[in-house]
Design a protein around this nucleic acid. Structure first.
Length: 255
DNA sequence: ATGGTAGAAACTCTA
């Protein structure tokens, strides 16, 4: 079974990249972030024509998360149940005994800002919810844009990024807390090329110079990690004209 | 030095 995640940075703009990517890679489940549209304007018909059912937790202008799937999902959940949040950042559903969660963790803007405090609170709430989800669903996969580079090797210039948002110690600690409920970073289950990143700033020719961060992740419970066959970043869509600033991440798990 | 690019939407905010 192939599961994947991609922060598309506007689904409407990126549909011409997403549809060919789905056709070429054929994920069974695809998590999206930053759809930036309301449920009413979600391109469900175009995705249905491509063979995908859709679950969306939409929002106008900002945020918005979705799960696309070949088969119908069950027990869909929008948001973190015990966390009041006006922003659409989480959607989850069951697929044949596997619980899949699509997350868009707050960016945090800058260390010490209100948005940074919200990000840390948000990651705590996510951690506690996932602890309960894992107890209820041994096959748990959490995919999305976590807006945290876990280690220095996930940052193109660790010195320059030291203490900065996306790489600061409290954010890394918060992400370690999420992993600590019993989830593995699927990408690091395998040997990977050095300087592997999933996000490159649009500015300063960052992608051309590979000035990136690895902030999009696939987290797997032990039952899924033990049967995980691969986890790869596909940088190809970042080279297209008018790309998302993020690359998709694909992961093969036992069916 | 606080730039620069992109998206949505409305002349600004978020990333």
């Amino acid at each position: 079974m192939k599961i994947a995640t991609w922060n598309v940075n506007s689904l409407r703009v990126r549909l011409p990249h997403l549809l060919p990517w789905l056709a070429a890679n054929a994920p069974d489940v695809m998590c999206l972030q930053e759809t930036k549209c309301e449920d009413e304007t979600f391109p469900a018909a175009e995705l249905a024509a491509a063979g995908y059912r859709t679950l969306h937790h939409g929002q106008r202008t900002y945020n918005g998360v979705a799960i696309l799937s070949r088969a119908a999902g069950g027990a869909a959940c929008r948001g973190i149940p015990a966390f009041e949040d006006p922003q659409s950042r989480v959607i989850a559903a069951d697929f044949d005994g596997m619980r899949v969660v699509s997350v868009y963790v707050p960016n945090g803007q800058s260390v010490g800002s209100d948005k940074y405090a919200y990000k840390l609170r948000w990651l705590e709430a996510l951690r506690e919810w996932l602890r309960a989800e894992l107890a209820a669903h041994p096959k748990l996969a959490v995919l999305g844009d976590f807006n945290v580079a876990p280690e220095d090797r996930d940052v193109h210039d660790p010195k320059a990024w030291e203490g900065q948002v996306l790489a600061s110690a409290p954010e890394r600690e918060a992400l370690r807390g999420v992993l600590g409920v019993g989830l593995a970073d699927a990408f690091r289950l395998f040997e990977q090329p050095e300087k592997s990143y999933t996000w490159w700033d649009y500015r300063m020719g960052a992608f051309r110079r590979n000035l990136g961060l690895r902030i999009d992740h696939v987290l797997l419970s032990p039952a899924l990690a033990s049967g995980c066959a691969s986890c790869t970043i596909d940088a190809a869509p970042r080279r297209l004209e008018r790309p998302s600033d993020h690359a998709p991440v694909m992961c093969e798990v036992a069916a």
